[in-house]
Amino acid sequence: MAKPTRWVTDTKPGHSQWYVDRFRRLAAEGADLAGEARLVDALVPPGSRILDAGCGTGRVAAALAARGHTLVGVDADPTLVEAAHADHPGPRFLVADLAELDLPGQGEPEPFDAAVVAGNVMTFVAPGTEPVVLARIAAHVRPDGLVVVGFGTDRGYPVAELDADAVAAGLRLEHRFATWDLRPWRDDAEFAVTVLRRPA
């Protein structure tokens, strides 16, 4: 059984429903919630098969599906996956811990052209499981496919550790930006968006 994630251990009771309500409110207010999806859409061919790893309420998966891609979203939190199902018909959403990710065992045997890991997901996995999580995600991506990871740099997972974990997972660093809208990377940036490729 997987270790409890930081999403469970480092948040208060009711946090998941608060998160659902927050993004429903932002959507109702017309907030731009598709920035990650725009970048991923620009990186992949039309009609790609994409894994939204740590999909939360499904906003990134929904935005990519609206652009013509086939989406499978995965999250360990059943409350978030239930909200994703309710709010975003189209993508397939599954409950699964990324540290034990086995999508063929859940009826999704086909590899993905890309995986997106947005919303600080890598900083919410269980402590010490970051290398395993990245390796499990990479294992579901086809050769020459992409893994795009974004998180705040002040959240306890240094970019240097991501780079080491990526190498161990068989991924190659291709690009790094300071934001999802491609502002240049700086060592003191508060956010990192990293584009990794699984070599052919």
Rank of each mutant, 00 (worst) to 15 (best):
A2Y: 06
K3V: 06
P4R: 12
P4F: 12
T5W: 02
K12G: 03
P13R: 06
Q17P: 05
D21M: 12
F23K: 02
E29A: 15
G30Y: 13
G30E: 13
A31M: 11
A31C: 11
A31L: 08
E36Y: 06
V40A: 00
V40C: 01
A42R: 11
L43F: 10
P46Y: 03
A53R: 09
G54I: 04
G54L: 04
T57D: 14
T57I: 14
V60H: 07
A61F: 05
R67C: 08
G68I: 06
G73H: 08
V74C: 06
D75F: 11
D77F: 02
D77H: 05
D77Q: 13
T79D: 15
L80M: 14
V81N: 02
V81F: 10
E82A: 15
D87W: 12
H88Y: 15
P91Y: 07
F93V: 02
D97N: 11
D97I: 06
P104K: 10
Q106L: 15
Q106H: 14
E108D: 07
P109V: 09
P111Q: 07
F112D: 00
V117L: 09
G119Q: 04
N120S: 08
V121P: 00
M122T: 10
A126F: 03
G128F: 14
V133N: 01
V133F: 04
L134I: 10
I137C: 10
I137L: 11
A139P: 03
G145F: 03
G145I: 02
F151T: 01
G152H: 10
D154V: 12
D154I: 10
D154L: 15
G156C: 12
Y157P: 01
Y157E: 05
P158S: 09
D163V: 05
D163K: 11
A168H: 04
A169K: 11
G170Q: 12
R172V: 15
R176K: 15
F177K: 02
W180M: 04
D181P: 01
P184G: 04
R186V: 05
D188P: 10
A192P: 05
V193Y: 00
T194K: 02
R197N: 11
P199Q: 08
